[in-house]
Design a protein around this nucleic acid. Structure first.
Length: 641
RNA sequence: GCCGGAGUAGCUCAGCUGGUAGAGCAAUCGCCUUGUAAGCGAUAGGUCAGGGGUUCGAGUCCCCUCUCCGGCUCCA
């Protein structure tokens, strides 16, 4: 009896019944048999030892295949756990998956034992021994009762909990165990044939992580690592990581003198004069663009009676994140969001359907009492300004308003050369408003996304407490994802604040409300932007657009004259009048990433020109000062990149 | 907030097993007068995060607090 399988090249292959993936690879060729790691059958990865199903579409997974890295990283996680269990026999194991750039394994170490990267060499040495031994990964399928007994007997409580959950939630009757050398783990698989493939690995960091991501449960110790098929690839990856670290906005912010932090104002940036110029340029950009899009700018208070926060729901749902104070008789809250203030402002005047949509924009200063452990440079702060806006509109206008926003956001991100990842986040556990409202709100957002052809991922349960949202995310230099823009549909606030407009029927109606921001917080956006650009800001954003470099002290007066001509044309220009060599002045200007370096020597002075060197080294030769002024003005006006 | 690590001059860091702090860059002053990525010299700069303890003696050992870093939870 023979079975037939379909190969990726369209051919069919005949195999004996019961043939394994390894048999299949061997039937195709000896080279493939040696390279084979696993088999993909009808889209599902399986061990090489597993029998091949008749009629399946199969592909042999090798080091070159997509998914092969994830496979050996998962193998590496088992090798890590094996090594850790040898060194710390009383350790409890939990889970150890492959992740984007590597793998981790979470352990509970015995009381009093803590792991740091100083322990990595010993662990890695044990890991190398397991790899060198080329221990086969052996799969075993066991009835859940037997598997449970086995892990219970070994004191592996986390594995027992996992098995109990598999039974309760998925009704499984058997589970699979994988053994490599002395180590056995509850694992779905698949794995490569042996540990030998995990040749190039490195442990990277140790961190805490809650069991099952629940902050009420045990804090486990997570060890992160990565693995590649070759030492060269591993070295190249580690080198890339190091280069990314050089782009860290906290480092660049210090080097370029843009902002500082102080332990006397935790989570709040101090912007230097240069940093403030950059920040203001960004704020002015958004004021200009929102005005062009039909928003009107408004200003609302910082500090409100607690009553406002009770109406909005913040007092119940968000107070932990608010800075609360009081006057002589009343509790007060510093605003963490602009929306309640905007609702009050909307309600202070009557609105006709003819006026809608009303679009309020406010570069609003917000304070949020973020947990200390989450603060991170400019990317997570307690004091920040959002390019916030709220749109009050009719039900019929929602879709076009959301579509208009998606367009607007795309325009802004394009100015900076950023590409974002879009997510639709739906109702969270902690929320206000009934489910019917949420159903409607989620459906409208999805419709607007579809109508504009925006690609997005679904992020269930991550909406704001008052409504679902569409978020735009960017990654920082270390690969962490941060939310920038957002648009959130909210039927709840209009109810709570009893907002109305007069319809064509002369009756009062409830408007819908959209909360939206494109940059998110200016602070976070600048952090991400600095990392994206590696600190090399385009002319229109650069705090110092050009610096005049006289080649000798005797030209300092001419330098001042040239600089002031450029300044009166609107350019942000400095003069380097130090008694230093041109080479030195160039070097310092390069390190400050100043776009235009303008060398002034005797020839230039005589001709009324400056010799232009752009950041990065391009030498454009002598250019008339008027022409330079015009060029800088043009680059600033057009926001050229 | 939780787990782990770290905190020495403005910045980057050295300071072995305890014997009262050092370099480079930056800064200041002077000399040099410079043509596209570091000219030379001198000077100044530190309650070694803060507090408590052990010790004849603490940057170094112990405890507490603060902040920062990496994660986790949370979030723009």
């Amino acid at each position: 009896m023979a079975i037939r399988v379909h190969l990726p090249d369209g051919n069919e292959l005949e195999l004996e019944e019961g043939a394994s993936g390894a048999d299949m690879a061997a039937a195709i060729g000896p080279g493939l048999a040696r390279a084979a790691l696993a088999v993909e059958a009808d889209g599902e990865l399986r061990d090489l030892t597993a029998p091949v199903r008749d009629g399946a579409s199969v592909a042999v997974l090798t080091a070159k295949s997509d998914g092969a890295l994830a496979l050996i990283r998962h193998d590496a996680a088992h090798v890590l756990a094996a090594a850790v269990m040898e060194l710390y026999p009383d350790v409890k194991i939990s889970i150890g998956p492959a992740i984007d750039n590597g793998f981790y394994y979470d352990f509970e170490f015995p009381e009093g034992v803590s792991i740091s990267d100083a322990d990595f060499p010993a662990i890695e040495e044990r890991m190398r021994a397991h790899v060198k031994a080329a221990e086969p990964f052996v799969r075993e399928d066991l009835p859940v009762t037997l598997a449970r007994e086995r892990f219970a007997a070994a004191g592996q409580d986390y594995k027992v909990e996992l098995i109990d959950d598999l039974v309760a939630k998925e009704g499984v009757e058997t589970v699979s165990l994988y053994t490599n050398g002395p180590f056995t783990d509850l694992c779905r698989g698949p794995h490569a044939p042996s540990t030998a493939t995990v040749k190039a690995f490195a442990l990277q960091s140790v961190a805490g992580s809650y069991w099952r991501g629940d902050s009420n449960r045990t804090m486990l110790t997570r060890i992160y690592g990565t693995a590649f098929f070759s030492k060269d690839e591993l070295a190249a990856y580690l080198e890339r990581l190091e280069l990314a670290r050089q782009r860290d906005h906290r480092r660049i912010g210090r080097e370029l003198g843009l902002f500082h932090f102080s332990e006397l104002a935790v989570g709040s940036a101090f912007w230097t004069p240069h940093g403030t110029t950059l920040w203001n340029t960004l704020r002015d950009l958004m004021s200009e663009l929102t005005a062009a899009r039909g928003y009107t700018e408004v200003k609302t208070p910082q500090l409100y009676d607690a009553e406002l926060w009770r109406i909005s729901g913040h007092w119940d749902k968000y107070q932990g994140n608010m800075f609360v104070t009081s006057d002589e008789e009343r509790p007060l809250g510093l605003k963490p969001m602009n929306c309640p203030g905007h609702c009050l402002l909307y309600a202070m005047a009557r609105h006709s359907y003819r006026d809608l949509p009303v679009r309020f924009a406010e570069p609003g200063l917000l304070h949020r009492n973020e947990p200390s452990g989450t603060l991170h440079g400019l990317l997570r702060v307690r004091h920040f300004v959002t390019d916030d806006g709220h749109i009050f509109c009719t039900e019929e206008q929602i879709e076009s308003e959301v579509a208009g926003f998606l367009e607007f956001a795309a325009e802004v991100y394009a100015l900076f050369g950023l590409e974002t990842r879009v997510e639709l986040s739906t109702r969270p556990d902690v929320r206000i408003g009934d489910d019917a409202l949420w159903d409607r709100a989620e459906a409208v957002l999805a419709a607007a996304l579809d109508a504009t052809g925006t690609a997005y991922a679904l992020n269930p349960g991550d909406g704001a407490f008052y409504g679902p949202k569409i978020d735009m995310h960017m990654r920082d230099s270390l690969g962490r994802s941060w939310q920038l823009g957002t648009i959130q549909l909210d039927y709840n606030f209009p109810e709570r604040f009893e907002l109305t407009y007069t319809g064509a029927d002369n009756a009062e109606h409830r408007p819908a409300m959209l909360h939206r921001a494109i940059l998110g917080s200016l602070e976070r956006f600048l952090g991400i932007l600095i990392e994206h650009l590696g600190g090399v800001l385009p002319v229109w954003l650069a705090p110092v657009q050009a610096i005049v470099l006289p080649i000798s002290d005797r030209l300092n007066a001419a330098g001042e004259e040239a600089a002031s001509k450029l300044r009166s044309a609107g350019a942000r220009v400095e003069l380097d009048h130090r008694s230093e060599s041109v080479a030195r002045k160039i070097r310092d200007a390069e390190l400050r990433k100043i776009p235009y370096m303008l060398v002034l020597g005797d020839r230039e002075e005589a001709d009324g020109t400056l010799s232009l060197r752009e950041h990065g080294g391009a030498d454009r030769g002598a250019i008339a000062i008027d022409a330079l002024a015009a060029e800088l003005a043009e680059l600033t006006l057009t926001r050229a990149r």
